[in-house]
């Protein structure tokens, strides 16, 4: 089986500081991979390299056979096919929820306004926010905003979704509603890379867990193996800190 997302020998530097060290991982179609690790371990940076938001100096990444680092690649076109959800939602505050979902479809995918609108309403329904189509992001709770952000990504019909700590900025009581949407996506067979500390989510839907520390991929193991029998001391230490509550 060929990988949907293939990361091979990836290294990245900020000036003289190396932030990613020879990272390799392959994510198959419909596979859900959770990336975890201490803060500053390079998880978010790795994720942003996958859709070319961060440049990298060494190695290669391909998504659906398209090389991300190749200067000849049309990056906007590739990114339009890869959904991304951010820690701070990043809805566009001056646009209504509906316009947040339709604008990229219309401007990037050149869909008609009617088609975009129908799609937007279908996806708002899916994340349980149909009633909020004409509200503005500032009028929604954090959990609701994040669900809108997921719907906005889905409206582009992505072949894969990247989640960058999607629940870290949420109040505890709102985390579950966002995770529920993500679990639904995973069950529907979406290819997903999820940077998160939500180990309950990882256990429930992840096929594999990638553990990073100091810019390196330390472990890349099936979920059960990772939790029951982590291969490295660093992963064991991390798990003991994060799971003791």
């Amino acid at each position: 089986m060929s990988a949907m997302i293939d990361i091979a020998g990836l290294s990245k530097w900020y000036g003289a500081t190396q932030v990613l060290k020879d990272c390799s991982a392959a994510i198959a179609t419909a596979e859900v991979v959770v990336v975890c690790g201490p803060s500053g371990s390079g998880k978010s940076t790795l994720l942003k390299c996958v859709n070319g938001l961060e440049p990298f100096q060494q190695g290669r990444i391909s998504v659906d056979g398209v090389s991300v680092g190749d200067p000849k690649t049309n990056l906007p076109r590739l990114r339009a096919r890869i959904g991304m959800v951010f820690q701070h939602f990043e809805l566009f505050p001056h646009l209504s929820v509906r316009r947040n979902l339709t604008l990229p479809q219309i401007k990037v995918l050149r869909r008609s306004a009617d088609e975009a609108n129908a799609k937007a309403l279908r996806l708002l329904e899916r994340v349980g926010l149909s009633a909020y189509a004409d509200k503005f992001p500032g009028e929604l709770s954090g959990g609701q905003q994040q669900r809108v952000a997921i719907a906005r990504s889905l409206a582009m019909d992505p072949i894969a979704m990247l989640f960058d700590e999607p629940t870290s900025a949420l109040d505890p009581e709102m985390i579950q509603e966002v995770l529920d949407v993500m679990v639904g996506l995973a069950r529907d067979g979406m290819t997903m890379i999820v940077v998160t500390h939500e180990m309950g989510f990882a256990r429930k839907v992840a096929h594999r867990v990638v553990f990073m520390d100091k810019g390196e991929i330390v472990e890349n193991a099936p979920t059960a193996d990772f939790f029951e029998n982590p291969g490295s001391e660093r992963a064991r230490l991390f798990l003991s800190k994060i799971l003791q509550h």
Partner: peptide, 20 residues
């Protein structure tokens, strides 16, 4: 993140400026 979100949705840099 506003710039990143615009680009991640497939907007070109001029589109990100114009619409967001």
């Amino acid at each position: 993140g506003q710039r990143l979100a615009s680009l991640a949705l497939g907007m070109t840099l001029p589109q990100a400026y114009a619409y967001v």
